[in-house]
Design a protein around this nucleic acid. Structure first.
Lengths: 345, 345
DNA sequence: GTGAAAGCGCTAACAG
DNA sequence: CTGTTAGCGCTTTCAC
C-alpha cells in the first residue's frame, strides 16, 4: 500500500523544528523572501527535502485569501471546441501556478446556478464563464453577484464583467463573401437547434453575419436556406437530402458543429454529389478531421491559443490588480481557413 | 460593476452576530447538527439568507482536512473519450458535493509529475489518474507517494492503488470473433502510434485481444495487418490505401481512435470500396458520428456511466472509509455495438 | 441546548 | 536577520 497511510502530514512546524529555526524563518524561506541568511535557507531547504514537505494549500488560501484556482464553467467539454479551449486555458494558467476547476453547465440554468454557487463559496481567484443561458435572469444575477474577477466567454451578458467575444459576424460574412466570390448564390446555412436558439449569441450572430454577407454584396438573402435543426438526430440529414435533391438546390453549404457537419456530408454523399464540384462546403469550427477529410474542408476557425492568452491577460490583470477600470471587452476574429471543399485553393 | 467590490466577505461571525447567537450555534445550524432549538435554527437561517452567507471553503478545508475536491489527471480532454469520461465523473461526483480539478497529462512525464505535486499540496480528497506514462519510474513513485485515495484508470501501475481497468482484450476478441464469424480472415488492426506505444496498456491489450481472437478460433494471426501509425499525419491514410489496393487486401478493418478511423474511412473511399460490402469496419471507441455515419459504424464501446459509477464507489468508499483492505481492482468490459458497417444487422 | 475557547497550517507584522 | 505572535474562518470539544 502507500507509504505513510495515516501519519499526520508534515507541517511547516516540523520543518522549522528539524531545521532548528523558527516557524517564521521557515515560512520566509518557503516564500523566497529576501531577508534570510544563506545558512538558514540551507538548513530549511534541507529539512524540506528530507521531510518531503509541501505547504498546506487550504491554510495558505485561508491566510492569503487566494486559492490559485480558476473556476471554469463551460457549456460542455464533450464539444471539441470547449475541450480545446480548456486545454488552451490550462496552458495559459498553469505556468502562472493556477489550476482549473472545470464544470459543465450543460445549458441547464439550475445546474449553472449550483456551479456558480459552489465557485462562490470556494473562493476562486477568478472565473471563466460560458453559460448556456445568456438570458436567464437568475444566472445573470448570479454572475453579476460574483465578487471575484470574471471573464465571460462569447456570451452577451449585461452584468458589468470583462468579456471576450468571438466576432461571429465577421467570420460568417467572410465565409459567405468568399462563396459569393466563387459564384455561389444559393448558399445554405445549417445551424444546431436548441430550445432557446434565438437567444444564443453565437447562433444569433452567425445568422446576422450570413445575411450581412449577402446584403453587403448587394444580393438578396436566401432565407429559405437558413436551416435550424436539432444536432442529435438525423433531422439534419433528411432536411439536407431533401434540399439538395430538390429544385433550386444550394450549391454551397455552411455547416456549424461537428454533428451537423457530418449529417451534411452524409446527405451530400447520399445524393451522389461531389465536393466541391457539385456543392461547396465550409465548416464553422475546425474539428481535427476537417483537414484530413477528402477533400479537406474549408473552415472558419477560432484561434484558441490567442483566446486563452487574452482571457488570461484580462483575468490575471484583474486578480493582480494591474488592470483597473470598468469592464473590458475584447474581440477575437475567427479566420477563414481555405481548403479544397470551398472550391478555392 | 459588481455589487460589493471589496467589502470583506461575510463570515460566520457576522451571521452569529445578526442572529444574536454564539458562533458555535451558528456553526451547528449550518452543519445541520441535531442539538439546536427550532428558534435558534430559525434566527440563524434568517441571518444567513439576509447576509447571503456562504461558508468559506478554505477555512472548512483547513479545519476538516477535506476539500470536497477530486483531482483528475487525464491524458487529454481533447480526446472525446476522456471528455465523455470527465462528464460522467462529474455526474457521479457532483451530487455528492465534490468538484473536479482537471489537468491534462499529455503523455509528458514532467508535466504529470508537476500535476501530481500540485494535487498533493492541494489536499485533494481523492485522485483519479490516467497518466500517459505507465512505466516512468518517477511518475510511478509520485503516484505511489500520494497519501489520499487514488483510483488508477485503465493503466497498469504497480503502485498498490485501487484501479479500474478496461478489459480491452475481451473487447477486441469479441470484435475479431464477430468478424471471423462473418467469414473474414484478412482483418486489419490499425492503432495509433506514439513513442512508447508498446508499453501502453490499452494498445498492448488490444493487440493481445486481436491475436487472441484468431488463435481461439484456430486461425493464424495476420501479423502483417497489424498497423501502428501516427495519428496526427496522413500516414494512416497512405498505409491503408496501399494495403487495400494491394494483393491479399484486408476485408475488414478495426480502427482505433477518431483520427485513425477517419483516415481509414478516407482510404476506403479513395479506393472506391464500399462498406460493408467490400470491407467491414469496426471502430474501437464510439464517437458520436459512428452511429450517424453512412452506413452506421459498428463499434466497441465502453460504458462510461458505469465506469464513473464504479470509480466513484471505490474512491468515495475510501474517502469515507467504508471501504477498507488492500487495493481493489475493478474491470469494465467494453461492449460490441453491432451496426451495419460490420455486415451484421 | 448553548457559549467560550482551542486550534487546523499558514503568513505577516512586530520586536528584538 | 530571526523569533514570537496574532489571526484568517471554521468546527468541535468542553463546561455550563
Amino acid at each position: 500500500m502507500s507509504e505513510t497511510p495515516k501519519a499526520r502530514a508534515v507541517s511547516i512546524r516540523d520543518v522549522a523544528a528539524l531545521a532548528g529555526v523558527s516557524l517564521g524563518s521557515a515560512s520566509r524561506v518557503i516564500n523566497r523572501a529576501e531577508n534570510v541568511t544563506a545558512a538558514t535557507r540551507d538548513k530549511v531547504e534541507r529539512a524540506i527535502a528530507q521531510l518531503g514537505y509541501r505547504p498546506n494549500h487550504a491554510a495558505q488560501s485561508l491566510r492569503l485569501k487566494a486559492s490559485r484556482t480558476i473556476g471554469c464553467m463551460l457549456t460542455d467539454v464533450t464539444n471539441g471546441l470547449y475541450a480545446k479551449l480548456f486545454r488552451a486555458l490550462e496552458e495559459r494558467f498553469r505556468p502562472e501556478g493556477y489550476m482549473l476547476l472545470l464544470a459543465n453547465g450543460l445549458n441547464n440554468p439550475q445546474r449553472e446556478l449550483d456551479i456558480l454557487s459552489m465557485f462562490r463559496s470556494r473562493s476562486m481567484d477568478g472565473l471563466i464563464l460560458a453559460p448556456g443561458n445568456e438570458r436567464d435572469a437568475d444566472v445573470l444575477a448570479a454572475v453579476k453577484a460574483q465578487d471575484v474577477p470574471v471573464v465571460i466567454l462569447d456570451r452577451d451578458m449585461p452584468v458589468g464583467k470583462d468579456s471576450l467575444l468571438f466576432d461571429h459576424v465577421s467570420g460568417m460574412t467572410a465565409a459567405v463573401t468568399h462563396l459569393i466570390g466563387q459564384g455561389h448564390r444559393r448558399i445554405a446555412l445549417v445551424l444546431g437547434q436548441t430550445p432557446d436558439t434565438p437567444s444564443r449569441r453565437p447562433i444569433r450572430l452567425r445568422v446576422e453575419g450570413f445575411r450581412n454577407g449577402f446584403t453587403t454584396n448587394g444580393l438578396a438573402v436566401p432565407e429559405d436556406l437558413i436551416v435550424l435543426s436539432p444536432a442529435d438526430t438525423h433531422a439534419t440529414f433528411h432536411t439536407m437530402s431533401a434540399l439538395l435533391s430538390g429544385t433550386d438546390a444550394p450549391t454551397a453549404i455552411i455547416a456549424q458543429g461537428t454533428n451537423i457537419l457530418h449529417d451534411c456530408l452524409n446527405a451530400i454523399g447520399a445524393c451522389g454529389l461531389r465536393i466541391p464540384h457539385d456543392v461547396a462546403v465550409i465548416s464553422i469550427g475546425d474539428p481535427d478531421f476537417a483537414h484530413t477529410y477528402m477533400p479537406p474542408l474549408c473552415s472558419v476557425r477560432i484561434d484558441l491559443q490567442q483566446t486563452a492568452q487574452l482571457c488570461g491577460d484580462m483575468l490575471l490583470g484583474r486578480i493582480r490588480e494591474d488592470l483597473a477600470g470598468g469592464p473590458q471587452l475584447v474581440r477575437v476574429c475567427p479566420e477563414l481557413v481555405l481548403r479544397q471543399s470551398c472550391g478555392a485553393v
